[in-house]
Amino acid sequence: MNSILLFFISVLAGVFTQNSSELTINITNIESIKGEIIIGVFNTDKNFLKDGSAIKNYSIKVENHSEQIIITDLPKGEYAISMYHDENSDNECNRNFLGIPKEPYGFSNNIKPKFSAPAYEDCKFILDGEKELEIKLLN
């Protein structure tokens, strides 16, 4: 009886770990040691970068010139990341009159926007187990 129970527990454990993933994001080029880094995770191009459209949001208190976050609650799939350094802790990405962020920001694949915000297609990546990204903040 114990071997049957152990078998079913093993099968269930395999089912639950099949879709598990671990995304490590290393954030570099942090100039000021204050505030938080706010991270948005998107899984579609629909409303990419629109306020309130991220499927998950995370924040990291800035304590060093580089920070790391390990995300374990995303299922395998396609994603894009955006982030900004909320230096003044006002919970928004402050922008100038042209809409360009005044606070440091970054995107997955280290996309550097030229004349407009990047497209989801440029920032997307596949998470299919363990993945490590390095995102360099743009100042």
Rank of each mutant, 00 (worst) to 15 (best):
N2L: 15
S3Y: 15
S3G: 12
I4N: 14
I4R: 15
L5Y: 10
L5K: 14
L5S: 13
F7H: 13
F8V: 14
S10N: 14
V15H: 01
T17F: 00
Q18W: 01
E22D: 01
L23F: 02
T24P: 03
T24G: 00
T28Y: 12
N29V: 00
N29C: 00
N29E: 03
S32C: 01
E36Y: 13
G40Y: 07
V41A: 01
F42D: 02
T44F: 06
D45C: 00
K46W: 02
N47T: 03
N47K: 08
F48R: 00
F48M: 06
L49M: 14
L49K: 05
L49F: 04
D51V: 11
G52D: 03
I55V: 13
N57F: 09
Y58A: 12
S59R: 12
K61Q: 13
E63H: 13
E63W: 03
S66C: 09
E67P: 07
Q68F: 04
Q68K: 14
Q68W: 06
Q68L: 15
I69S: 08
I69G: 07
T72W: 01
T72K: 15
L74P: 02
P75H: 10
K76L: 04
G77P: 05
E78F: 01
Y79M: 08
Y79P: 03
A80K: 13
A80L: 11
I81Q: 10
S82M: 13
S82W: 06
H85L: 05
D86G: 09
E87I: 14
E87W: 11
N88W: 07
S89T: 14
D90A: 12
E92R: 15
E92P: 06
C93F: 03
N94R: 14
N96G: 02
N96Q: 03
L98A: 04
G99V: 01
P101C: 04
P101M: 04
K102I: 03
P104Q: 11
Y105D: 02
N109T: 14
N110K: 15
N110T: 09
I111D: 03
I111F: 00
K112Y: 03
P113T: 06
P113E: 05
F115A: 01
F115P: 02
S116E: 11
S116M: 10
A119W: 04
Y120Q: 06
Y120D: 07
Y120I: 10
F125C: 06
I126A: 09
E130T: 11
K131T: 08
E132H: 10
L133E: 11
L133W: 06
I135C: 11
